[in-house]
């Protein structure tokens, strides 16, 4: 479970995030949506320790991890994928996942071998056919799935996904939704940033809307859809040019 409290960040004179608090409980998919530049990726970077917040705190499973390094957070059960891909392009697809499994196994030596786990995870995201190809040549959609499989290989309790659906076609995106739901059902806390609103509405139990670095509103998919402010944030205000 992930809890973020009152996060604030400034870039130069601009507030990138201001007073953002959200909770992402285990066992469900939580959505985080908002227009480009709203601060979603910045929030992910703060949660994973790549950036430091100017204010606020991050809690993982009720432990304050605000001062922890990125590595420590990963070891505590936090995994993520990236909007701008960070696959290990020189390794094969299988090696990408295998390495993650090995890093995780370094802690506790039991269970299945990393290669077996890698093959299972690749099958789960549907990349078995390209397991032996170099990861750098994958198209975006597949590379995003690879990042997902890689993140799963460290058996996270909380999973942050930054636009996993972009680059996927409709059928693939539907499959991704099913996969995320089943992950949540297994007890993982999933925080999903996604522009495919259809996907978000279908699988999220609770949705936060970020605009201008601040939370605009939160609620069930139906509540968020009905919110006028959300429509404005997403589509722009009515009658600007008149």
């Amino acid at each position: 479970m992930l809890r973020v409290e009152d996060i604030g960040v400034r870039f130069g004179g601009v507030h990138a995030l201001k007073g953002v608090s959200l909770t992402c409980p285990a066992g469900q998919v939580t959505g985080l949506i908002g227009p480009n530049g709203a601060g979603k990726t910045t929030l992910f970077n703060i949660v994973t320790g790549i950036q430091r917040p100017d204010a606020g705190s991050v809690h993982l499973d009720d432990r304050d991890i605000t001062r922890d390094s990125t590595e420590q957070r990963a070891r505590a059960g936090l995994a993520r994928t990236f909007q701008r891909l960070e696959v290990f392009g020189s390794l094969t697809v299988r090696e990408n996942v295998q390495l993650a499994a090995e890093l995780h196994r370094g802690l506790r030596r039991r269970g299945r071998s990393p290669v077996e786990l890698a093959d299972d995870l690749l099958a789960r995201v549907g990349l078995t056919a390209v397991a032996d190809h170099q990861a750098g040549v994958l198209p975006t959609g597949s590379a995003r799935l690879l990042e997902l499989a890689r993140a799963l290989a460290i058996s996270p309790t909380t999973l942050l996904l930054d636009e996993p659906g972009s680059g996927l076609d409709e059928a693939e995106s539907h499959q991704l939704g099913d996969l995320l739901r089943s992950l949540a059902a297994e007890g993982t806390a999933v925080l999903l940033v996604e522009h495919d609103v259809q996907l978000v509405m279908r699988i999220c139990a609770h949705i936060y809307v970020l605009d201008f670095g601040q939370l605009l509103c939160e609620g069930s998919p139906a509540e968020v859809q009905a919110d006028v402010g959300v429509q404005q944030a997403y589509l722009g205000a009515e009658s600007v040019a008149s």
Binding site: P35, N36, D169, Q231, Y234, L235, G236, A237, E238, S239, V240, A241, S242
Partner: peptide, 20 residues
């Protein structure tokens, strides 16, 4: 190029939608 669809629809004379 615009992300705010409604704003863009207000200001544009023509609209093209790109996908995949």
């Amino acid at each position: 190029v615009e992300q705010f669809a409604r704003t863009a629809l207000e200001v544009a004379d023509e609209v093209a939608v790109l996908s995949q």
